[in-house]
């Protein structure tokens, strides 16, 4: 949103743990009403950024502004105005969803009558109305994740900070979570900052910063970041991807990248290359062929020269 001051501005964020500095100076702005993503593989510093923003880790340096006003990261003012969704559980198995929402309303000093209406609305929003009084330990994983989201919204925060909000969710739950997040943004004008290691999730954000080694290597809209990588991506699946990659090099002089279950080729005019590969390969060697525009995982590789997915950061 050009011209308008950002809701959240992060400058010079440095920090880490006692023996290890992770963040080497991270800068980004989040506009009002925007869903801003922090994409990076494990160890890139996105979780450390989350901890510093929420005040759970004291940064070595950080100039943080909310609405243009300098505030303490994770200080009282920040804690009043921010809602936080954790990646690890932050619910008590022995309490019910309604109790969680009521205790959180209390923690944020939401007036009782206002809290009552808000809690009912959020139980409906999270599809938990009929399980509102059951103990959390009897709820499914998906229900617990929805409770975590509802709980972060009790005090009507102006900014929601989420750490890997869809980690471990199947495709359907992933879609439903995103429907809820976009609905929230439309209805409440909520601004969101989320960390993610899923390129397909980052692609849903309005804008994102790509993190690598504790630094931001690029910040832009997903479409513009993807446009910077030219060509197409061909993904071939086969029983033995490394053998297939070797065969492609030997017979067609193609440079292919091997992932745990596929072979990836980045090239110009992919639609012309595919028939050549399929015709040259002996029958039965290929399982599937897929042609697509570069994903954000390819953007990451393009920017850093390293594969996004690895043994430490599986797809």
């Amino acid at each position: 949103m050009p011209g308008e001051a950002p809701l959240l501005s992060v400058r010079g964020l440095r920090g880490g743990y006692r023996k290890r500095t992770v963040l080497q100076g991270v800068d980004f702005d989040v506009a009002r009403g925007e869903i801003f993503g922090l994409l990076g593989p494990n160890g890139s510093g996105k979780s450390t950024t989350f901890l510093a923003l929420t005040g759970l880790l004291r940064p070595d340096a950080l100039d943080l502004r909310l609405d243009g006003v300098l505030i303490e990261a994770g200080g009282r003012e920040m804690r009043r105005r921010m809602g936080v969704v954790f990646q690890t559980p932050s619910v008590d198995p022995n309490l019910s969803p309604r109790e969680h929402l009521a205790l959180t309303a209390r923690l944020h000093s939401v007036p009782t009558d206002k809290a009552r209406a808000r809690i009912e609305a959020l139980l409906t929003f999270a599809d938990l109305a009929d399980r509102a009084d059951d103990k959390v330990k009897t709820l499914s994983g998906g229900m617990r994740r929805r409770l975590e989201l509802a709980r972060a919204l009790v005090h009507s925060p102006s900014i929601l900070v989420l750490d890997e909000p869809t980690v471990g969710l199947d495709h359907a739950s992933f879609e439903r979570t995103w429907t809820r997040l976009t609905e929230l943004r439309e209805r409440e004008g909520l601004t969101m900052v989320m960390t993610t290691h899923r390129p397909e999730e980052a692609a849903r954000c309005d804008r994102l910063a790509i993190l690598d080694g504790g630094r931001i290597v690029a910040t832009d809209t997903p479409a513009r970041l993807q446009a910077a990588v030219s060509g197409d991506v061909i993904t071939l699946t086969a029983r033995d991807p490394s053998e297939l990659a070797a065969w492609l090099k030997a017979h067609l002089d193609l440079d292919a990248r091997v992932t745990p279950d596929a072979v990836v080729i980045v090239c110009e005019r992919g639609h012309a290359l595919i028939p050549r590969i399929v015709e040259a390969l002996p029958a039965g060697r290929l399982e599937t062929v897929n042609l697509q525009r570069p994903s954000l995982a390819e953007v990451f590789s393009h920017l850093t020269g390293r594969a996004f997915f690895s043994a430490e950061n599986p797809a």
Partner: peptide, 15 residues
């Protein structure tokens, strides 16, 4: 503090 209810208390406004 790392995977429970206390996390949510630590990001609420109390000192």
């Amino acid at each position: 503090r790392h995977a429970g209810f206390l996390q949510s208390v630590l990001v609420s406004p109390g000192s």
